[in-house]
Simulated assay, not measured.
Amino acid sequence: MDNFELREKAPHETVREYAYRVLYQNIMTLKLPPGTAMSEQELSGVLNVSRTPVREAFIRLAEKGLLEVLPQRGTFVSKIHTEQLAEFRFFRVTMERAIVELACQEFVDPWKTKLEFCIFEQGKFIASGSAANFFKSDNTLHSLLYEGCGKPHIWQVVQDSNLDYARARVLNVSDGDAAEQMNLLYEQHKGIVQAVFDKNVKVAKDIMTEHINKVMGDVAVLKQEYPEYFG
């Protein structure tokens, strides 16, 4: 757990919520990569909490499919499941094409301003080489499209369904030439936003499809480089 990122407890956060949040964020950012052995005792010491909130966090993470309990062996961060990625790609492409079509019909301020700022922010993250912040901003851009169309709850469903997909994206952006990966995604983001502003449904849907499918095209390469991360 050399890369484990310890975060401060929020003012009104319970110990249970804190333990879950820190473990969840470390798993999703691959600070705890797939296959990592998880120890209640060790993590309670790292987080400076009792074992009970850590155990409860383990249960919640297992329910989300992020932890796997293997009898007689222990608890491990779940591997990224290729079959689930393929299934989710279909779901995500379907939803994202629908949302940009809605956005092309009517997408008003302050959502336009927020999208423009998001694109500006991503350019700064590329310049500073911050892949982690770029990925957060990537998620923000997609969430703004849903919120601007009055569909925030659907975005939450998408988020809750795409945990393996999200981890694969983090790995993809972090792998090899991160700047090249970020620049490609950045250009796609700019194209999507411009198409929405221009109310060009076809272009928006075409770029979004290419954008979502990109991860699946890269998975084959990632599986060769990180076979221990995939199941």
Rank of each mutant, 00 (worst) to 15 (best):
V196C: 01
L185I: 05
L61T: 11
N183F: 03
K31E: 15
P227S: 09
V201T: 13
R51N: 06
D164H: 10
S128E: 15
A168P: 06
L70P: 11
V108F: 01
D175S: 10
P71S: 09
I27G: 12
P53F: 05
H142Y: 03
E42S: 09
K136N: 10
V100W: 00
N133R: 09
N213S: 13
T75H: 09
R97S: 00
E147G: 01
S130M: 09
F107L: 02
I59N: 09
A10S: 06
S39G: 00
D160C: 04
W111R: 01
V196P: 02
V69E: 10
E13T: 06
R21H: 14
N3Q: 13
V201E: 11
D177N: 12
N183E: 12
V49N: 02
V77I: 09
H189L: 06
M182L: 05
G148L: 00
S39F: 02
A62F: 01
R92L: 14
P71K: 07
A127Q: 07
S143F: 00
E5V: 13
T82S: 15
M1Q: 01
R73L: 15
N162R: 07
A204F: 06
N200E: 14
R21M: 14
G129S: 09
K9R: 13
L23R: 03
E56G: 05
I80M: 13
Q181M: 03
F88M: 09
M95W: 06
E83W: 05
A132H: 06
A204I: 12
E96N: 07
K114S: 04
L61K: 11
Y146S: 00
Q105S: 04
E56S: 14
E210T: 12
K202C: 08
E56C: 10
E121K: 05
M28P: 02
R51E: 14
D138M: 01
L145M: 10
V158Y: 04
K79C: 15
